[in-house]
């Protein structure tokens, strides 16, 4: 039915919970897939608090469990969704991109490809620009 919705809305999602510890980010992913399928658009997914762990390249879940970072990456690839990770929340929890790893002289970076670090202002930009901002995992 894509493209036939007159009332297509622009969504953003705020993810506050870590994968595996809580169901919230898996639910958010299903919600994201469903809204895109129904012809709505997804402006930004903002990862805050423990939600930043969704962006770890180093997560190695058992093969019979879903790999949420990989599924978020696939969603972003297929639908050009921006996956933004709060930089303040990420740094204190050990999620770093190459630039931050260099700045803090860490041995390695672990921000998964497809995710970007950004400021809390981008959460507000998402709130302003989107018709709906949905919070998961508070």
């Amino acid at each position: 039915m894509r493209g036939f919705f007159i009332d297509a809305m622009k969504f953003s999602l705020l993810i506050q919970a870590a994968p595996h510890s809580a169901q919230a980010s898996a639910t958010a992913l299903s919600f994201a897939e469903a809204l895109l399928k129904q012809g709505h658009s997804l402006h930004r997914v903002f990862f805050y608090r423990d939600g930043v762990h969704n962006a770890s390249e180093l997560a190695a879940p058992p093969q019979d469990e879903t790999n949420l970072p990989h599924r978020w990456q696939a969603l972003a690839r297929e639908h050009q969704v921006e996956l933004m990770v709060c930089i303040a929340a990420a740094l204190k929890r050990g999620i770093l991109d190459e630039a931050e790893a260099r700045r803090y002289q860490k041995a390695s970076a672990n921000l998964a490809p497809g995710f970007v670090l950004g400021g809390l202002g981008q959460l507000l930009e998402a709130a302003v620009e989107s018709d709906r901002l949905i919070t998961f995992g508070n």
Binding site: Y48, G119, L120, G121, L123, L124, A127, V128, N138
Partner: peptide, 29 residues
Amino acid sequence: KILFISRHSPYGTSQAREALEALLAAAVY
């Protein structure tokens, strides 16, 4: 019009602290 709803105690988890940080970031927006 953006309303922050803060429903958790100040200590024990980072929920309230990080809500306040987001609120202050929003305020300057």
